[in-house]
Design a protein around this nucleic acid. Sequence first.
DNA 1: AGATATGATCTGCTTTGACGATCATATTGT
DNA 2: ACAATATGATCGTCAAAGCAGATCATATCT
Lengths: 161, 161
Amino acid sequence: MTDMTSERGLALETDLGQALAALLRRYLDGAREATDELPGGPRGYQVLVNATAANCSNQATLAQLLGIDRTVMTYLVDDLENAGLVERRPDPADRRARQVLRTTAGEAALTEAGRRIRAVEDHVLGGLADADAQTFRRLLAAAAVDAPPTDHSMCDVVPEC
Amino acid sequence: MTDMTSERGLALETDLGQALAALLRRYLDGAREATDELPGGPRGYQVLVNATAANCSNQATLAQLLGIDRTVMTYLVDDLENAGLVERRPDPADRRARQVLRTTAGEAALTEAGRRIRAVEDHVLGGLADADAQTFRRLLAAAAVDAPPTDHSMCDVVPEC
DNA sequence: AGATATGATCTGCTTTGACGATCATATTGT
DNA sequence: ACAATATGATCGTCAAAGCAGATCATATCT
């Protein structure tokens, strides 16, 4: 078994992409169940998480932040809006743009879904001791922070965003 | 800026899925370039990495390991085989299954692509100090090891696999 | 030997997501 | 104020990938 494990784990240990993909797959497997009440599934959840005024949350920014196409974002927000979880509102600073904001119902849905997602996250990191899991989360966040490519481009010029 | 950064980072810090996805996206952006000579791109590379006799590398196992559909795996291996990078060989232990093994040319291609992928990996983890990056790799591998769902099912009964 | 199970391939279907073009609205320059 | 420009949102098209079903070859069980 030890032979096999070491052989098997070799690619996972050396290949960052494979390990990341495996972990994300596992996460999404659980997240799909945890978010089956939300329109858009895991992606709808991510939008909901970020649909707050503090994030200058127009659709383009959200799309860029989550790495999905802006045309897909339209349908995603449509569905969330039809479900009454978010609402579109013209940005007072630039009324071409439309902010995507959680409604009260959206807050409640987020709280509930967040609880279930949290359980999934814990399950995904179940192979790590608590301290290691915490360290992993910290390093992951640090590595990911500057991941969104041209993230600050539109917020730099709008400080109050 | 600090306000914005903390707001912005909030989702990344608390939401495992979002951070994982952002990091993987970044990896794939680089990996696509790094593997543009290989059939199948990043996925072809992953297959190539795992196409070794030590991994009981039949197509079903590979597909499960990489989380891709078995019908897609057929085409993927077809392309790699046509490019002369791997060869199919009936498993002597079970001639229904076909082992996918790297050829000499495949080894060379893997070495070259691996070098470029390594650079991408380093870039992806560029936000971390070297020691932190190493820790992250270690924890990621540990968390991912038992990720492939029913991984051991077919190898448990074939010890020499 | 016959029945059943598994692996690989092939075929068709459906969904998803990305890309390009277009439309609507707001901002800027004169 | 009005044209020119810019930005964001939407629509239509298309390729990639997953999914289900059927077929064939080989293995295993009884």
